[in-house]
Every structure is written in structure tokens, then in C-alpha cells.
Nucleic acid binder design. Structure first.
Lengths: 342, 342
DNA sequence: ATGAAAGCGCTAACAG
DNA sequence: CTGTTAGCGCTTTCAT
């Protein structure tokens, strides 16, 4: 059985509250150097460690935050892996621990809400869709919350941390217009500009698409050559390949995928269908998830710094927990990664 | 402020314990259907959720387990990513949540031990070196523990879960001998057999190396052609390339890397030095971490099912927590993955 | 400078 | 069938 403050107190003939006071380094009251030493020694000797549960119950503060995502955790999920690594980093800086309440997908919103609100955590990092009822339940209950990556349009009050979708996409598109494969340079007409996005709508998707369209229009690209193509999910296997094929075989073009996962699936499909990536195509992604094993190609993409975002999210949440007012949106810069696909 | 059982009790004119009893579904005592209904309704109405801290404090059971690793969590760490995914899965099955105590690297063993023993967790999954003092501190303190992947030679009592290192390596080596690139077939003499392992010694490394050596000797491979090469870390950049080059340019050979990470680094180095992977070489790894983006090669390796191991580890830990005796070692099968590198 | 006491919210033994 | 009581281990007034 673990040794308690009470044990130490009775061994030393002191009251438990005195022991607690000393061990907490309470500076407001004066304590005799003598007693302090005795208590500290005894604590050391018995390997005393305060019970975090009791302390948290009393203080109403656990120093644990939770991560709630509606995605199944999966080693293949680069986004989650990267963000999680950053969160861990941030937790260390803030002296917080991280609780991963599991099975949060595949349970009812109500159950999830209960799990999240059972007193074990001080705040929650959210990565879920805007329609997720859990979000509003949490905010209504007053749980400190930071949304990761996507501002929730339905809950404008929800603070969030994002990558600079617009800035990153602008940089990427300007690169394509000025320095990309020569067939695409601003002067060249006849090049097709295709933006590939998923059927589900996220704020980040919209922001990227809009920045892309705007940048092209500002560069006087013929709007007849600009096209947004929707795929059901994130995988280009499901794309409308009749349309895509027509575009591809018609001449030079840029296939701008809304994120890296879609870009990789596009590269895969092109390789399968054409034997290799047609040289007159520029393919780009967005996220900065580079292959760390055997890169057959280095994707041209935008580094969102997802790990930094995870880390920063924790520090924001910590501020929120301690009652500070935090900005509605914190947007971190995104930077271009020049690969070989554009 | 959250609504408590006491609130509900006073609203209904009942005692708090009655409320608690009903909400816990205590079946030992009979409760009037009438009261039950009233309590349940009130709980529902007020969105009552029991405080997990108070409950845990009282019961001495938190239903949370911890993961302690001496590695820094990193999105690039395939092992951790895979195991973590499996752990999450296992936690769901056991109705446990997972606490990631952070900064466990970069703190003193004593601090880590304190963090792990502060009452928040019922058991710990370990992934660390055998010499880590935290391990013996935990076992001595009676904390239920399962070691992941590597049996700790110093603490034979420590239950662990492993992949079948020997079986997997045997299957892999036999494949090389019988079906691999034809220059290596059993009949062909003059082929070099190199096992590449790290300077640090783990049980899994030894088991793999021994199974490899044994299988070759049993196949009557000239022991003069068998060689174990040590690299400082896991990266082949640091290998003795003079020796390696001599072997490679001397004729056909198999370069058997102790794990996938080393194998990928070897493939990278070979590509850098020779322009491509020399056709007369067979390269193999061990782990089953395949590239999910743009595989330039598909590594021939052994699937250890790390996610399954993570999942199973949780179920073992759950048994251990509830007092059951669990086997010293649980070894899960490993299976061959036939790629293009051997 | 230290002690006594109240209580965080819950469970579980014991009464009745 | 339900209420009373006694804690779990800690923090935090309020006394002394």
C-alpha cells in the first residue's frame, strides 16, 4: 500500500496538514526549518508520492487534458501522428499529461460527452467535424476546448488553431505560375488548372480552394481553364477518370490536390494508368507529410507544421484552463516544400 | 458546476447513497421500480455524470492504464505508432482509457516513477531498455506491468509480450535459401550472408540473429560466408562501408537487417552509392512497416503485427490488474511479407 | 508555527 | 427497500 501524508504525519508526531503544507512548498506560512527537514527526509525515505486523484478531487484540477477525435487512431494517419507528437511536446512544456479516451468513435455523443466530463480532464483538444454534437455539448458545459485544424463554422465562439491555408496555397500557386514546370508559366495559355477536393466540406478545404482560385484569377488565367473536381473521399481512385483523362491528355496542366493524402493517391493512380507520372503535369499536395522511407517522388507540397500546431494547441488550452481569454483563431504560418512533382 | 449525486438525492428527498446505488446498477439489493425511475429520470434530466476521480479514489481503481516508453514520441517512429494504434484498440475492448504521461524521457527515474505511481493508473505498459531503473522500481512497488516487444533479461519475472522473432527469422531465411533471388539458392556457393545489427543489445536482436545463423548452418551454408556486422545505431550510414563494399562487389549476397528501419536506411545508402539496388543483392528487414505512400520498392520483411501486440498487451495488463496470474512471455506469430527486395 | 476540522464526490458496510 | 456512517487522501480555511 502506498504511503500517505497521514502516515508520515503520525510517524513524526505532526498533523497531516502540516506535512501537506510542507510538501506543497506553501510559502505563505512560516514553517520551522527543523520540521521542514524532518518531513522532507521522511518523505524521501518512504518514497512518498502524493495521490494525484485526491489532490485533483480537492483542487478541482487534474493537470490532464484529453484529445478527442472522431477518427479512429491508426498508424497510417499522418495527421494524427504528427499532431500527437506535437501535443506530447506541448504537454511537457505545460506540465500536463495527456489522456486518450478511447473508443470515442463508435460511441454515442452522449457517452463520449460523459467520458469527457467525468472530472478526469481539465480541457479538451478537439479534432472532429463541425456537426459533431459533442462539440456544442462541451462548450455549453463550459469545458475549455481548442479545435485543431478546422474552425467550426457553426460555433464561431470555439477557439481554434489552424495552419495558414490561404497563405500556403497562395505561395504554392504562385510557385506553379512562375517557377513550376515551364508549360505552366504564366505566359503559357492552354494549361488546365484542376483543384481536387473531397465531397465533405471543411473550412480548410474551402480556404485552400478559394486561395487557389483567387491567385489564378489575379494572374489572369483564363477562367475556362480553371476547374474544381470533387472526389467522394480522399482517394483519387474514386475520381471521375473520364474527365481527368480528357484533361490530362489534352495538354499541360496542374493537378492541385487539397491535401497530401489525396496527392499521393493521385500519383499512385497516374503511375498505374500511365506507367509513370506524365511529365507535362504538375502535382501538388498540402500538409507536408513526406515519405520517410523510400521516396519514389518528392511531393511538392505545403508544410503546415502540424506538430507545431499540436504543441501550440496545448499551450492555448492551458491558458484557457487557467481562465485567460484566448483568441478565436490562432493561425500558424505554412511554408512551401519544393519537391519534384511540380 | 457539475451536478453531483448529492444534488439529485436532495432534489428527490432521497439519500445520496440510494442514488449512487441505483446509478451503479447495484443488483445485490432490491430497489423499488418507482424510486429507480425517479432517480434515473432526474439523472438524465440533469445530465448527471459520476465524478470518475471520486469514484476512483474510493475504489482504488481508475480504469486508466499508462504507457511508459523511454523513446521520444515521434510521428516517424513506426513502432510506436503501430503499437499505440493497437493499444487504443485493446483499451476499447477492456473499457480502459490510456494516459500518456509525457516527458518520461528527459526526466529522472525517480520523477518518472513518482508520476507513474501517483494513483492515476492501474497498470503500465512498458517499452524501455532492460537496464532502465524505472522497471524494477515499478515491479517492486507492485504495479501491474507488461513489457512490450523485448523480454527484460534482468527481470525474468517481468511478464512480456513479444513477436515470434525466431520463427519469423527462420521463415525469412528459409525463403532466401529456397525461393529468393536465384543466386542465393541453397545450391549456390560463394554467396555472402550478412546480418546487420545495432551495437545496443536487445533480446529481440539476439533472437533474430541466432535464428538466422542457425537456419543457415542447418542448410549447410559455409560458415566462412556468414558474417554479423554491427552498426552503431540503426542507420546504415554509419556502417563499415569498406567491408560492406568488398562483400557487395565480390558477388551475390543477402543483407539481412535486424529491423525495417535499418533495412530502409540500407536501401537508401545503396541507392545513393550505386544508383540503384544492385540486382545480385537480397535485402530484408523485420517488422512489417510498409510504405503507404510511394513505394519505390516493396521491402521483403517479416510482419510482426505490432498493432496486435499492442492490443493484446492491454488485455494481458487488464488481467494482471484484476489479480490474475499471467504467463511470463506471450509470443505472437510473425509472418513473411514477400516484397521485391529479395 | 502548527493543529483541528471541513469537505471534494463517491462507495460500501452496516443498520434498520 | 432505504438511510446512516465512515472513509479514500488531499487541500484549505480558521483557530491557537
Amino acid at each position: 500500500m502506498a504511503v500517505t501524508a497521514k502516515d508520515i504525519a503520525s510517524e513524526l508526531g505532526l498533523s497531516q496538514s502540516t506535512v501537506s503544507r510542507i510538501l506543497n512548498g506553501d510559502t505563505r506560512q512560516r514553517i520551522s526549518a527543523e520540521t521542514r527537514r524532518r518531513v522532507l527526509d521522511a518523505a524521501e525515505k518512504h518514497q512518498y508520492r502524493p495521490n494525484a486523484l485526491a489532490s485533483a478531487l480537492r483542487k478541482g484540477r487534474t493537470n490532464v487534458i484529453g484529445l478527442y477525435t472522431n477518427q479512429a487512431y491508426d498508424a497510417r494517419n499522418d495527421f494524427l501522428s504528427n499532431v500527437l507528437a506535437g501535443i506530447q511536446h506541448g504537454c511537457r512544456a505545460e506540465a500536463l499529461d495527456l489522456l486518450l479516451p478511447v473508443g470515442t468513435h463508435s460511441r454515442t455523443p452522449d457517452e463520449i460527452f460523459r467520458t469527457l466530463m467525468d472530472g478526469r480532464i481539465d480541457g479538451v483538444l478537439l479534432h472532429t467535424s463541425a456537426e459533431d454534437p459533442v462539440v456544442s455539448m462541451l462548450t455549453q458545459a463550459g469545458m475549455p476546448v481548442i479545435a485543431l485544424a478546422d474552425p467550426a463554422p457553426m460555433a464561431p465562439a470555439l477557439p481554434c488553431i489552424t495552419a495558414d491555408d490561404a497563405g500556403g496555397m497562395r505561395a504554392l500557386t504562385e510557385f506553379l505560375l512562375s517557377n513550376g514546370r515551364h508549360m505552366l508559366c504564366a505566359g503559357v495559355s492552354g494549361a488546365s488548372w484542376v483543384f481536387i477536393e473531397p465531397a465533405f466540406q471543411l473550412t480548410s478545404v474551402q480556404r485552400r480552394r478559394d486561395a487557389w482560385c483567387d491567385t489564378l484569377r489575379n494572374a489572369d488565367v483564363d477562367s475556362g481553364m480553371i476547374r474544381v473536381m470533387t472526389i467522394p473521399d480522399e482517394d483519387c481512385e474514386q475520381a471521375d477518370w473520364n474527365a481527368l483523362q480528357a484533361l490530362i491528355e489534352n495538354g499541360p496542366g496542374a493537378l492541385c490536390c487539397w491535401n497530401d493524402r489525396t496527392a499521393y493517391s493521385l500519383l499512385r493512380q497516374l503511375t498505374l494508368r500511365y506507367g509513370s507520372i506524365p511529365a507535362h503535369l504538375a502535382i501538388t499536395g498540402f500538409d507536408g507529410f513526406l515519405d520517410n522511407k523510400l521516396p519514389a517522388h518528392r511531393l511538392t507540397t505545403v508544410d503546415c507544421g502540424w506538430a507545431d500546431i499540436g504543441c501550440r494547441a496545448v499551450s492555448l488550452l492551458a491558458s484557457s484552463i487557467s481562465g485567460e481569454v484566448i483568441p478565436a483563431e490562432t493561425c500558424l504560418p505554412a511554408s512551401l516544400i519544393l519537391g519534384t512533382t511540380a
